[in-house]
Amino acid sequence: MASKQTVLQSRMLFITCLWVLMTLIPNQLQSKPLVITTTPTLGQIAEAVGGIDVQVHSLTQVGQDPNTFFPRPSHVEKISTASLLFSAGFGLESTWLPTLITLSANVSIAPGQTGYFSGDDIIEAIGVPRGMTSDSMAQWSPDKNPYWWLDPELGIKVALALAIRLGEIDPVNAENYRLRALEFTTAIANELPRWRDYMNIHTGAIITYHNTYVYFMKAMHIELAGFVEPKSGIEPSTRHLSKLIDIIHQKKVKLIWVEPYNSRIIARRLADEAGIRLMVLPDSVEGYGSEGYIGMFEKMVERIARWSQ
């Protein structure tokens, strides 16, 4: 009888322990702040700073154009539980993100709240890069260029600000966030001189399809010779393309860079006509945290160097 009671008691103890474990584990997971980012590269910056203390989810995938993203109901559900929404800003997500925030009914991530973190609150758009023609400058709006993450130094600046913001949301781990942001800074600072040297050896002036890579070119001291499509979505004129061919010959341009998600038809025609090469350059790559972010620059530098041969 006594042994039966002991078995029953031990069973009850086991069930109680299991219940405690089952309730504790999800709570542990849920207690981590959920950071939602609009692009995968912003996700890598958030992972680099947040590490194991946060959960990170990117709304768009590698290779996807964040300008023309179509959110699904699962995205609304995801964003409704977010502690922090991390966007690039400068109008990149303006066509879909405000609606997504409204639908989520998550007031803590609305603009102006602690849970809303945008690149355009931290950095200022860069000035007109060297080497641009007067026509290109007139058509370029520097305050609207949202691709700041392609400048590693701006990535550092935003990561440091992100560490402070995460510390406000999750004060217990504030020191961890600060330390990780410093590690991220060191890792990039160690690589940056090598990337710049590599680019100075291998590239001359470059033509790009849109203004996506302007931050990268400024960071790597690469001269911009012009854009194939100066106004996004507006077909360039034949006169503009003729001028670009003249510029290509004058400045001995060797490459045209195109984003993975843009049509290559016009750029390919221009490259063929001018006798130069067209290459697709990523603006994000797969990978976790600072390794993924640094990996993107490694891939860009390696690819540019290879194609410039």
Partner: peptide, 12 residues
């Protein structure tokens, strides 16, 4: 929506 890489190629 299932093919993030294909957008530019398809449109082109």
């Amino acid at each position: 929506s299932l093919l993030p890489y294909g957008e530019g190629q398809l449109m082109g």
